[in-house]
Design a protein around this nucleic acid. Structure first.
Lengths: 215, 215, 215, 215
DNA sequence: GATGAATGAGGATTCATTCAT
DNA sequence: AATGAATGAATCCTCATTCAT
C-alpha cells in the first residue's frame, strides 16, 4: 500500500518523528500484549523502543492514548488484502476460503497482528472506544466480506448451508479460536491450524461441493 | 444448616469458614472479571464479600492465589452435566448437539460461568498454571466429549465430515465466539446466540443426517 | 493482654486517629510554609510526622486537601481570644489596642500561626477556596472586630480619625507588615515589633485620647 | 531606529539580543507571578516570549537565575520618581504624602510592578539573595525616603507623631496591604484603595496639620 | 479468627535542562 | 545564535500486604 512520504527526506541523522512513533507503537504492542494494559510498564515500552521514558509523551498523551493508537495503527492493511482476494471473480468457493484462511494464517497468526486481536479480546471490554472502533473497522467489515462470499457461494450451490449468510461468524469462529489457542495452550498442546482450517473448509463446503469427498 | 461444627454457640451469627471462602471467591470472580487481574482491587473484593480486607489473607495466600482458586472453583460442575447428556445412548446427533449447546447457553452464557471463561481468556497467558489447569480440566475434557459425540455420529453417518473427530475444536469455536462477543460487542451489535448455534448445528450436520432433515 | 478493645479512654498503644491527624497537619504546616505548596514534598511531611507516606492518604484525599485542611485547622482560636478582649466594657481604647496587639504578637507572631498567615499570603491566590475561606473566617471577622473597637472609641473621642471605622484595615496593616517582615527581612534587619506597634497605637490614638473632645 | 548597533545587516528582522532578554524577563514575570516559582513552567515563559525553550538558556543560566533577574530588572525606576517628589522642597506634608501614595497607586498597583512585589513576598523567603537585594535596593531606600519626609514634617509640626521617624514602616504598611489585598481578596471584596490611602493620610497627619483639616 | 490502619514499593507523569541540528 | 526533541530525575498517589489490637 502506498503512502505519500512526507518530510523532505535526504539523510536523516536524527530518527524521523514517524519512525519513532512506529518504534513506540511496536514496542508498545509487544509490551501491552505480554502484560496486559494495567501491568504494562511504560518504562519497558521505552526500553524496548530504545528511547527515554519521557519521549513517549512527546508522541502520545498518556498510556491510554498509546494503547488506543496501537490498536488503531495495526488494523487496516489485512482487510484490504482480503478484499482483493474476494474480488477475484471466478474462484471456486473452496479455493476462495482456502486463500482467505491462508492470508489469515500467514498475515495474522504468524505476525504481530495476532497480538492486536488478542489485545482487543483481553482489554476491549475496558476500552469501549476501542471495542467500538474494532467492531466498526474490522469485525463489521470482515463479516461483511464473508457474507459476500457466502452469498455468491450459495447462489452457486457451493455451500453446505445458507445459514452462513445470516451468521458469517461461523466462518470466522475457528480463526478466532486459533488466535486464542495460540496464546493460551499452544505450549501445552500445539494446534495444527492448517489442519483445523482445512477441516473447517470441508465442513463449510459440506456436500455443497459437487464432488464427494468420501473416505 | 449443614455443619454445626465450629461456632455452635448462640446463634449462628458468625459465618462458617467455608461460607466465607465462597463469598470471597464469588466476589473475587466478579471483581476480577470486571477489571482484570491487575486492575482488580482487593479492597473491592472485600467490600463485595462483606468482609475486611485482611480477612482475604486468612483464606488465600495472596492475590495470585485468590485468582487461581477462583478459576479452579468455578470449573467442574458443567462438564458433569454435559457428560450426562452425552451418555444418553440413542439420541440423534442433531438433538444431542442441540442439548449440548443449550446447556452451554443457559448454564454458561447466562451465568457467571462465562466470566470464568473470559477470565481464562484474558489472563490465562500470564498464569501458565491456570492455563494448564484449565486446559486439562475443561478444554481437554470438553474436546474429548465432543470427539466422543463426533465418533458416534460419524459411525451413524450423522455428521457432515469426519474431520470433526480430528478437530472437535470446530464444534466448540462458535461457543467461544459467543462468549467473547457477549463481552465485547453485544452492546454495539447484539448477537442472536440461539440462531447462531442453530445455524452451526445445521452446518455441522450438513447432508449427514438425511433421516432428519425435516425439522 | 490485648483485651482492652476499641479505644476506650485507656492507654492507647496505637496513636489515636485524631492525634495522627494533628501530627500530619502540624508537619504539613511546617513543610508547606518552608517550601511553598508546589515544592513541598509529602515525603517530608510524612517523615516529619513520623509516619509512612501512604498514611497521609488515610486522612487526606490529596495534597490539595491537606493544604486546605491545614489552613482551616489553624484558624479560629485566636479570634475568640480577641473577641473576649474587645468585649471588656470599659477599657480605654489605647489599652484595648495594646492588649489586641499584644495578643497578636504573642499568639500569632511568636507561634506557628504566623506560618498560616504567610501560607495564605503566598499561596492564596492559587487557592481561591482558601482565600475565600480565610477572608470569611478571619479577615472579615477581624476587620469587624476592629471596626467595633473603632466605633466605640470614636464615640468616646478616643481616636484620631473616624476614618478608621471605614478602613479598619489601617489598624491591621502594620500587623500584616510584621508577619511579612519577620519572614523576609528579619535576618537582615530585625524589626522591633513591640516598638512598631506602640508607635502605631500612638498614631492611631493621635490627639484623640488627650483632649477627649468630640469633633 | 534608536540603535543601529548590532545586526545592522538587512532588515532588522531578528530581534536584538537585549530585546529578547526583555521579552523573556517580562514573560517570566507574568508567568512566575501567576503560578509561583515552582509551578511556573519555562515552556510557558518561552511561549509567552515568543521564543524556543532552549533560548532561555542562552540568556539565563537556569530557572533560579531567571527569577532573580526578573526581580532585579523591575526594581529601580519608581524609587527615582519618588525621590523627585520628595525633593520638592515646599510641599506641605499632606500633599507630599498624597503625591507619594498616588505614584504608588498608579505606578505600582496599576502596573505589573505590583507583581514583582508579590513575587518577592511569596518567594522571597526561599531566595535569600533576592530578599537581601530587595531589602537593600527597595525597602531600605523606600523607608529612608519616608523617614526623610517624616523628619521634615515633624520639624514643621505637620505630623501626628514623631514615632513615624523611627518607624517609617507605618507609612508603608497600608500600601503593602493594598498589594496583598489586590492579589487575594479583591474579587471577594474589592478594596477602595484611594479611600484607604486618603484615610491613612488623615490618620498620619492627625491634628498635626491644623491648617488644613478643613473637612 | 477478624479487623482495618499502616506500610512502602512501584509506576505514570511532569518539566528543567541538554544538545544535535 | 536559535531551536525544540529528547532526556531522566523527581514526586504524587495507589494498593497488595502486614500486623497490632
Amino acid at each position: 500500500m502506498a503512502r505519500p512520504r512526507t518530510s523532505g527526506s535526504k539523510k536523516a541523522r536524527r530518527a524521523e518523528p514517524e519512525e519513532r512513533r512506529q518504534a513506540i507503537l511496536e514496542a508498545g504492542l509487544s509490551v501491552f500484549a505480554a502484560s496486559g494494559f494495567e501491568a504494562a510498564k511504560l518504562d519497558d515500552v521505552a526500553d524496548k523502543a530504545g528511547i527515554a521514558k519521557g519521549t513517549i509523551y512527546l508522541y502520545f498523551s498518556d498510556k491510554h492514548d498509546l494503547f488506543e493508537q496501537i490498536v488503531r495503527h495495526a488494523v487496516t492493511p489485512v482487510l484490504g488484502q482480503l478484499q482483493n482476494v474476494v474480488a477475484l471473480p471466478d474462484l471456486p468457493t473452496e479455493d476462495l476460503l482456502a486463500r482467505i484462511f491462508e492470508v489469515f494464517r500467514t498475515e495474522v497468526l504468524q505476525t504481530d497482528r495476532k497480538l492486536v486481536i488478542r489485545l482487543v479480546l483481553t482489554e476491549g471490554s475496558r476500552f469501549p472506544k476501542i471495542a467500538a472502533f474494532y467492531h466498526r473497522e474490522v469485525i463489521a467489515k470482515g463479516l461483511g466480506l464473508i457474507r459476500q462470499v457466502a452469498e455468491r457461494a450459495h447462489a452457486r450451490g457451493e455451500l453446505a448451508s445458507d445459514e452462513i449468510k445470516k451468521f458469517p461468524h461461523l466462518v470466522f469462529a475457528p480463526l478466532l479460536l486459533s488466535v486464542i489457542w495460540d496464546g493460551l495452550f499452544s505450549r501445552i498442546e500445539p494446534l495444527d491450524v492448517e489442519g483445523l482450517l482445512a477441516a473447517h473448509r470441508k465442513v463449510l463446503i459440506g456436500s455443497g461441493s459437487r464432488r464427494r469427498t468420501g473416505k
